[in-house]
């Protein structure tokens, strides 16, 4: 039995007092399309605990100080990929970034991810990002009749593209890419990761089409290997490596 139940006598209110608390200033980039012409900065000083994440600080502001603060979050546990934002100048998931790991002497800046149009506060228009993902056809392409059983694959073949299956489409990598900031036509790291996941899948037969799409002027050759994407990925995907593997596959047509 690995489940633990609360001991009958313990008071839940006792637990937080044992955790050190500290003052933290959150510096948020706000934008209300109905009243603002330019985004503005807003500071809030809060008392937070060592176990709190940036998302908890945002919740505290939204629930207790200013209910108009707008941001996306769903699962709040680093799986859904809704709350990617620029925290202290780096793309992070707010739900995976502990406050105690950030320098607390200075305000913690929180901005929307760059390169996509801001709709309100920390919410950006994700449609161009999804459009790039759709254009690499992120689904299994096969020919001939479907097998009556499952499509079998050896563990070694599965291992080949394991890294890129971890993607949660949070857009942290794509919006950390300097080429993507200045050129909205570029597919971006995430779309290439999505393509990599199928190109190197032994069951898929659409590799040639996907490679042809990424061989475009706005495809993999725009990558400048700055490693911003690898640094930003909250799932630890080696994004730049995946892009290089696609380049290599294109170069040698050896998938």
């Amino acid at each position: 039995m690995t489940l633990t139940t609360e001991a009958p006598g313990a008071t839940p209110a006792e637990a937080p007092s044992a955790i050190p608390s500290f003052q933290v200033t959150m510096r948020l980039r706000r934008f209300n399309p109905e009243s603002d012409t330019e985004p503005r900065w807003e500071n809030h000083t809060l008392t937070m605990h060592g176990t709190d994440r940036v998302l908890d600080a945002l919740h505290k502001i939204k629930w207790e100080i200013d209910g108009s603060l707008t941001f996306r979050r769903s699962c709040a546990h680093g799986i859904c990929g809704s709350d990617a934002m620029r925290i202290n100048g780096r793309n992070r998931l707010a739900c995976k970034t502990l406050l105690k790991d950030l320098p607390l002497k200075k305000p913690i800046t929180v901005e929307p991810i760059k390169g996509l149009a801001v709709q309100k506060d920390l919410v950006v228009d994700m449609e161009p990002f999804y459009a790039a993902y759709k254009s690499i056809m992120p689904f299994l392409i096969t020919t001939g009749n479907d097998p009556s059983r499952e499509r079998r694959q050896s563990p070694a073949d599965r291992e080949r593209f394991d890294d890129t299956t971890k993607c949660i489409l949070c857009a942290a990598c794509t919006t950390s890419c300097p080429v993507y900031w200045s050129d909205g036509q570029y597919f971006g790291p995430q779309a290439i990761v999505g393509a990599h996941r199928f190109i190197f899948d032994s069951r898929d037969e659409g590799a040639e089409q996907r490679l042809e799409i990424l061989n475009d002027r706005e495809g993999v050759w725009r990558c400048r290997t700055t490693f911003n994407c690898t640094d930003a990925c909250p799932r630890g995907i080696e994004v730049t490596k995946a892009i290089q593997e696609v380049k290599q596959a294109l170069l040698f047509r050896r998938v």
């Binding site: 254009s135 089409q209 042809e212 799409i213 061989n215 475009d216 002027r217 495809g219 050759w221 725009r222 380049k247 294109l250 170069l251």
Partner: peptide, 16 residues
């Protein structure tokens, strides 16, 4: 397959 504008390998050769 999607029709792509100018199916060339220009960028590939430039990179190489």
């Amino acid at each position: 397959p999607r029709r792509l504008r100018g199916r060339t390998n220009t960028e590939l050769y430039a990179w190489l």
